[in-house]
């Protein structure tokens, strides 16, 4: 097993590559997460119908769709290792930190793929107009890091528990809520065409959240992984 920090970075990248190749064989997680987003978006758009919702509600709705879609796909990465019994082999070849970072990178990419589909659709279907687009994209990027970080560690917990799918949302929601709250608030600022400085408190919260959650996850992951 390679445990040096540089080696674990390299290993993390290999694990990411492995998961990417595996994902494109079946495209299970990608299909699940994107279809979930489209279905939810359709449901929201259909039920709101011709009544135009105001921007504040649209911002909240966007993050709710993003949150629940990610809940449908983020846990797959660890559940798959448990179901195919490949986790033990991974344990032998590399250190836990590399596994966590590789899976985190994969989940982050999965979220980006989701957002590439979801954002234009949401803009089109919901008549959602963001006046400060760069701010919106930055909020989305930083938010995705936190979402992937929190989602990945909870996914690792869930994969070891016996009832897999059902608990994931329940466990993630309280942990991810600070991210959702500040994400929604920052999106509101972006929609109302204000400057970066006005969203600084939210951006700081989002960044701090991502850093804290990922650091703690790296420290704790070992205990779940070797269980």
């Amino acid at each position: 097993m390679r445990t040096g920090s540089f080696e674990s970075m390299v290993d993390a990248f290999y694990i990411f590559k492995k998961d990417l190749i595996q994902e494109f064989k079946t495209r299970y997680a990608l299909n699940a997460i994107i279809l979930f987003a489209v279905v939810t978006l359709t449901a929201v758009s259909f039920s709101i119908g011709v009544i135009s919702a105001d921007d504040d509600i649209l911002c909240a709705m966007f993050w709710i769709i993003l949150f629940f879609s990610s809940m449908s796909g983020l846990s797959h990465i660890f559940v798959r290792e448990e179901e195919t019994h490949t986790a033990d082999t991974l344990k032998l070849v590399t250190c836990p930190t590399a596994v966590y970072l590789g899976k985190l990178l994969f989940n982050f990419m999965l979220l980006l793929a989701l957002e590439i589909i979801l954002v234009p659709l949401y803009f089109g279907l919901m008549d959602f107009y963001v006046r400060h687009l760069p701010l919106f994209l930055i909020v989305l990027a930083i938010g995705s890091v936190g979402l992937a970080g929190g989602g990945t560690i909870v996914a690792a917990i869930i994969a070891k528990a016996s009832s897999r799918g059902a608990l994931f949302t329940v466990l993630s929601f309280p942990v991810l809520l600070p991210l959702l709250i500040s994400g929604i608030s920052a999106t509101r600022i972006a929609v109302n065409a204000r400057s970066f400085t006005e969203a600084s408190a939210e951006l700081q919260t989002l960044t701090a959240y991502g850093v804290v959650v990922i650091t703690v996850s790296i420290l704790l992951f070992e205990f779940i992984w070797n269980e």
Partner: peptide, 16 residues
């Protein structure tokens, strides 16, 4: 082990 990890994770997010 799992609940200990979860409880620490939750504890870290509560200050937010």
């Amino acid at each position: 082990a799992l609940s200990a990890v979860y409880s620490i994770l939750a504890f870290v997010t509560v200050p937010f």
